[in-house]
Amino acid sequence: MDNKSLVSIDDYTKEEILEVLARAAEFEKNPNCNLLEGKVVASLFFEPSTRTRLSFETAISRMGGKIVGFTDSSSSSVTKGETLKDTTKMVSNYCDLVVMRHPIEGSARYASEVSDVPVINAGDGANQHPTQTMLDLYSIYKTQGTLENLNIFMVGDLKYGRTVHSLLMAMSHFNPTFHFIAPKELEIPLAYKIFMDNNNINYHEHTEFNDIINDADILYMTRVQRERFADPLEYEKVKNVYILKNDMLENTRENLRILHPLPRVNEIAVDVDANPKAYYFQQALNGVYARQAIIAKALDL
């Protein structure tokens, strides 16, 4: 197993998180370099994710690397029925680094064990998406100047949202206070509450989305999806409750920034976009710098 791989956000210690964020800031100042000159990165997208793939490919291109791979398994040369093990073994012989997106949970950890080169997980089903978490952390760090002692408000689908869970785990190094705003059906899972209790992390749960956000430093919005509800009536009841509108921001803190992993549907009203506290589009750009830093670390560059 290659310990240079990044499969789960827990693979990074607090120090490593800070090291990668500092590196991301350097890449933001000077995005173009030739650190990956002569290197080949395999970009294996077993399911399509245009946003994540373009972000990785931009990061690799700006570092002077070459990319081989496929953008979804149906259009690729991956033979139907070939195991993940065989594909990974073959590809890792060709390249210096594997970036992998796969719908099956745990596939990235397994690939990192059979691969001869480091594997960066670009999402394995509902499990982990650590580069998203690093770009979220970089966005928080950049806009707040620190990760320590912040009031983090998370809104929407806190039950299934993997970005929420990974961000929670990563922020737990930095003495946060969490506020979770969600319908009962989509509340933060018990396992995370136990984790926070065991680690003395302050958290509060709310079902109403109102002026409690006036204390927020970060407002992390997620989408409430219809298919998460067994009872369609329950969805109808809550579907318009967790929508952020511009007038709700009137008395919020100056330093508040609104994050969203994108794509958004209607959970942030369009009138919020012009508010200087809206940060979700810059957040996406930060992903390129965060991924450059993660790649550099994986290859010891």
Binding site: E105, G106, S107, Y110, G125, N127, Q128
Partner: peptide, 27 residues
């Protein structure tokens, strides 16, 4: 992945009574 491909399952025992397992792969 352990239910999709031939992978030896691996768990960490996170609770001993009652025994509770955390998958090394899908977590």
């Amino acid at each position: 992945i352990t239910n999709v491909e031939e992978v030896t399952t691996r768990f960490k025992v996170i609770e001993k009574t009652p025994i509770t397992l955390k998958c090394h792969y899908c977590e």
